[in-house]
Nucleic acid binder design. Structure first.
Length: 883
DNA sequence: CGCTCCCGCCATGCC
DNA sequence: GGCATGGCGGGAGCG
């Protein structure tokens, strides 16, 4: 965060910037001496100098501002961002050069980040921060016009409110959840229908490659407007037309919130917005709308609410944005609902200038609750819930899902389209943008395992599995996003990731790296669990499934998928509940925790970082499993692969620190690390809903070794696949004979079931990569200064600890990543999996058969713990036996 | 070459 | 008329 603070800011913002500034004050003099121009004049002097130098015209205030500001900005911004002062100094000489900061340096997103860096995410209720547009503009060295762009978007989310001319009040994110909730509600109302109608159209459009204008009833717009207007209500509010940017921003956000996939393509959004606005959708209008959406998206990205992704379509890849902010607003929801989303919070905020705080207070409370909740319940609680009442949670989820589904059908369709493309792409390469796990047509045939498209692109940024939930954020949104994500996670229990089990799409387990595939086909997973996101889309893909025959078969399943969740099918359910209940993250943890319990020893510790523990278990399992596969992996250094993924994730998380959020970075990393890992499909037991586990082939080896030594933090990414699907595969044979006991009802899975089932029911065995939790930790640093505080608040100490612990624990992951990646990649290459798979499978299968400790499994039956243990045991057994 | 989206003209509306 | 807002789209940077 520090980076940005411009010189000028420091003085102003001393409180915040001091960190950076401190030097200056002292240094400044020195610098001045050394560098006459640099610091000293930068703030004021520069302007004066420039002004004097400048022609008289320059003097005109506006002109001056513009001229100077840019210069200042360039210098400042550049300096801070890249090198800060040093640069500045140098720059002084090369001012001109600096002036020419690349376009990126002037981007609205960057500007917004700078802007946001100046204010705390969660300001004390007591303190009101007023924002002077002129001041900010000068500080940031940009024209006022740019500030308007930012402020308008922020205002749409109630992060700020306009107090008076040129004066805005900074509210921070206290109200954000409420606002989002309101938007979500409003969005469902408006877009629910729209979505449905459009949805059809879109499908058609996409399918046929034709684009139609979506038809949307204007009437619906009204509501939105009204809704939004509250914000605008302010006296002048009515003045300007409707303040389209503000409204557009809200609508844009609504689309995300309503969308199941949480991915909205620009063109779709533009269409929708245009439609709402008017029927006419000239091409020019469309273009303009898109431009505006970019502006909004840049700000939202800076806020860590969305990230850029690409959706591959028939025609090609389309720019899209994925919502990475909080998805559910549980507590808030209640409150909000009580209040009636439409009217309240926002309006008040606006009017009262800073009245917002009331809201904010509520927000705080919420947060507090979460925090306590988290800390108190960490994993166990969650797990319990899950195990105890898997159903209920599911139901909730389902309910949500359903609604969203309907509303978002359109989005879903889009997603499906994307998936299809992705799949296709995947088939080809797998990487392009987002990859979706799809029942690959091709892959399926050949192998049980299909490769996930590897995200070569940063766009997709597949995040490492571990953090499945927010991986994305990390990836794309560097520091900022992470923090946010973290905070959001903490604050918002229900996170998106997990929540969507959805339609038979393969879904990632909320927090866990595992994917659940509704369909039976086997998959090769490469790298990123991140694809969680994709999972959602997949369902739609199911539709797409039509394309692939194989897919179709699964499709049926998929169709069920939604049902599945509700239905006994354990896996989905388990996931769902977790997601619903609270933050996905938590859910993840909990799950992992569960596992740990049994594991006892080392893992227990890790339990805090549920993910880690889980990972460990997994690893263990993997080891067992892997062992068979080992031969191949051995070469690679089996352990690494897993680690790599995790590490990669972690690293990514860490990376976030890097100023360049760089999707690029991420992408690179991802490309290298995560994706590579291939997974072996382990047929599980029938337990859950018949999930099968996939283990990364690559990983396995390493994992094994690790396991032997310790319970490495490594997480093994597992994919939960419906047993049914597996059944189809020859490989599958693996069902564990072990204990048939489905403790809970779930287990009852019709299929064979056994230990697995039990697992599924309560908690899945999912092992999350260790990373899961970790991200939180790492991310924060880089991100906004503000956020740090946040995270802390939200995250329960335990979590944090766990995270840290995990990280620490799994040095392997940390260190190896790169290496692993390399190794993995080669191996991981799409091709590899196939080849690998067979061997692994055999191994796996064998393993299970050999299962040494059936007894253990039986024991497992009882509780979640059982599950975990059972799983582990299985793994172990399998491993042992094979060996 | 197309995606992004910066830049700033200029309309709108209030004072 | 001046000023605050902010709609809008040309056109350039960038990959």
């Amino acid at each position: 965060m520090a980076p940005k603070t411009p010189i000028k800011n420091e003085p102003i913002d001393l409180s915040k910037q001091k960190g950076c500034t401190p030097e200056r004050n002292p240094i400044t003099p020195v610098k001045i001496i050394d560098r006459p121009q640099p610091d000293p004049w930068t703030p004021t002097a520069n302007l004066k100098i420039l002004v004097s130098a400048a022609s008289p015209d320059m003097r005109d205030r506006e002109k001056k501002k513009e001229l100077f500001r840019p210069i200042e900005n360039s210098e400042q911004s550049d300096t801070p961002d890249s090198l800060q002062y040093d640069i500045v100094d140098d720059s002084t000489v090369d001012e001109f050069e600096k002036q020419r900061p690349s376009r990126k340096q002037k981007s609205l997103g960057l500007l917004c980040q700078k802007f946001l860096a100046r204010y705390p995410n969660y300001p004390l209720s007591t303190e009101k921060t007023t924002i002077s547009l002129d001041e900010v503009a000068s500080i940031l060295g940009v024209e006022r016009r740019r500030i308007y762009d930012i402020v308008n978007v922020l205002e749409s989310l109630q992060l700020v409110s306009r107090v008076a001319k040129n004066q805005y009040c900074w509210h921070g994110r206290h109200n954000l959840s409420q606002t989002l909730k309101m938007l979500q509600d409003a969005g469902e109302l408006q877009y629910g229908e729209l979505m449905t109608s459009q949805h059809k159209e879109q499908d058609l459009e996409y399918k046929f490659g034709e684009r139609k204008k979506a038809i949307i009833p204007d009437s619906q717009d009204r509501p939105l407007l009204d809704f939004s207007e509250p914000d605008c209500v302010s006296a002048s509010a009515n003045s300007r037309k409707d303040k389209s940017l503000r409204i557009m921003s809200q609508k844009f956000v609504m689309l995300f919130l309503v969308s199941k996939t949480k991915i909205v393509t620009l063109d779709i959004a533009a269409k929708i917005l245009i439609e709402e606005t008017q029927d006419t959708a000239d091409h020019s209008k469309f273009k303009t709308k898109v431009r505006r959406l970019y502006d909004i998206a840049n700000v939202l990205t800076s806020l860590g609410l969305i990230k850029k992704v690409h959706v591959t379509e028939e025609r090609g890849r389309k720019p899209a944005f994925k919502w990475i902010g909080p998805v559910e607003f549980p507590e808030n929801t209640d409150e909000l609902r009580g209040h009636s989303p439409a009217s309240n919070p926002l309006p008040e905020t606006r009017r009262g200038a800073c009245v917002q705080y009331q809201t904010s207070t509520a927000g705080k409370q919420r947060f507090t609750r979460h925090a306590s909740f988290n800390s108190a319940q960490p994993c166990e609680a969650t797990r319990r819930k899950t195990s105890s009442e898997p159903n209920s949670p599911r139901q909730e989820r389902q309910a949500c899902t359903v609604n969203s589904d309907e509303n978002c059908s359109k989005m879903i369709n889009l997603a499906a389209v994307c998936r299809q493309k992705i799949e296709e792409d995947t088939g080809n390469k797998a990487c392009d943008t987002e990859t979706v796990l799809s029942s690959a047509k091709k892959s399926n045939v050949t192998l049980p395992v299909s490769l996930l498209p590897v995200p070569g692109d940063s766009d997709f940024c597949v995040n490492p599995l571990p953090q499945a939930v927010f991986p994305v954020v990390q990836a794309d949104v560097p520091s900022f996003s992470l923090p946010i994500g973290i905070s959001s996670q903490a604050s918002h229990p229900s996170m998106p990731a997990a929540s969507k089990i959805e339609n038979g799409k393969p879904t990632l387990v909320p927090n866990q790296p595992f994917l659940c595939f509704p369909s039976s086909s086997l998959f090769m997973l490469c790298g990123g669990l991140q694809e969680n996101d994709m999972s959602e889309p997949l369902p739609t893909a199911g539709d797409l499934g039509s394309r692939s025959a194989e897919a179709q078969a699964p499709t049926v399943c998929q169709k069920r998928s939604s049902q599945k969740c509700s239905s006994p099918s354990a896996p989905g359910d388990d996931e769902e509940p977790a997601a619903k209940k609270q933050t996905l993250e938590h859910s993840d943890l909990p799950l992992s925790l569960v596992v740990p319990k049994k594991p006892e020893s080392p893992k227990a510790e890790s339990s805090p970082g549920s993910g880690c523990s889980a990972a460990v278990h997994l690893e263990t399992n993997h080891l067992d499993l892997a062992s068979p596969a080992a031969p191949e992996t051995a070469n690679k250094e089996s352990t690494k692969p897993l680690d790599c993924q995790e590490q990669g994730k972690q690293s990514q998380k860490k990376d976030p620190d890097d100023p360049p959020p760089g999707n690029e970075h991420i992408s690179k990393e991802n490309a290298n690390q995560p994706f590579q890992p291939q997974y072996l499909y382990v047929q599980p037991t029938a337990g859950l809903s018949s999930f099968n586990f996939l283990f990364s082939a690559n990983q396995a080896p390493g994992a094994i070794s690790l396991a032997a030594n310790q319970m490495p933090p490594l997480s093994v990414p597992c994919v939960m696949v419906p047993s049914a699907a597996l059944a189809s595969f020859p490989l599958v044979p693996f069902t564990s004979p072990l204990s048939p006991v489905p403790d809970n009802s779930f287990s009852a899975a019709p299929s064979t079931n056994f230990s697995v089932s039990s697992l599924a029911s309560t908690t899945p065995v999912f092992i999350s990569t260790t990373a899961v939790v970790t991200p939180k930790v790492s991310p924060s640093p880089s991100a906004d200064p503000q956020q740090p505080a946040h995270p802390a608040l939200h995250l329960s100490p335990v979590l944090t600890r766990s995270c840290s612990a995990v990280k620490l624990d799994s040095p392997v992951c940390m260190g190896h990543p790169v290496t692993l990646l390399k190794l993995q990649q080669p191996s991981s290459a799409p091709l590899t999996p196939k080849s690998i798979r067979p061997a692994h499978h055999e191994a796996f299968f064998k393993t299970p058969g050999s299962l040494g400790d059936p007894v253990a499994w039986k024991k497992n039956e009882g509780t979640q713990t059982r599950n975990a243990s059972s799983v582990q045991r299985r793994l172990e057994i399998s491993s042992t036996s094979p060996d």
